[in-house]
């Protein structure tokens, strides 16, 4: 079975999904990520789905599960690069991916995670950046 590679860049794990998200692949990724988050101690995960032309409810559910698990492990997940046709389809399907933060591309995703970083550095621990809240 093919595996989705997980790259570590600074305080972020970057996952770029370039293969068909079959159920097994998705579940394996969920497992791999949880392990890597703990092993590396990162605080951010970026999942790039710009190469995916189909996201069905199973993949959507897996993404949501990854986000929840990461949050428990103190890492924020941002899903980036969703294609317009995929977004329109998910809306029609009735899947709004609650609890998942999104950005248009990897760069904006890193910026989004970075804004949280500054707050942490300032020592405001336990409080979230107000700009992040507006984007729920």
């Amino acid at each position: 079975m093919e595996r989705v590679p997980v790259l570590k860049i600074g305080d972020i794990l970057l996952v770029s999904i370039q293969i068909d998200m079959e159920d097994q692949v998705a579940l394996q990724l969920q497992e791999d990520l949880a392990e890597r988050i703990v092993a590396t101690g990162v605080h951010g995960v970026i999942i790039d789905i710009s190469a995916l032309d189909i996201v069905d409810s199973f993949v959507g559910r897996t993404l949501a599960a990854i986000a929840s698990v990461s949050r428990v492990l103190d890492a924020e997940t941002v899903v980036v690069g969703m294609r317009p046709a995929v977004a329109i389809t998910l809306v029609e399907l009735g899947l709004s991916l609650p609890g998942i933060r999104t950005a248009l591309n990897v760069e904006l995703g890193i910026a989004m995670l970075g804004s949280r970083e500054t707050v942490d550095v300032l020592g405001d621990e336990g409080e979230t950046d107000p700009a992040v809240l507006t984007r729920e």
């Binding site: 032309d53 189909i54 996201v55 069905d56 409810s57 199973f58 294609r83 317009p84 046709a85 995929v86 329109i88 389809t89 029609e92 399907l93």
Partner: peptide, 17 residues
């Protein structure tokens, strides 16, 4: 259209599951 392709393939994926 691209959007309609995506919709039908996604629907098919749901139903196949």
């Amino acid at each position: 259209s691209l959007v309609d392709q995506t919709k039908i393939v996604t629907a098919a994926s749901e139903l196949a599951r």
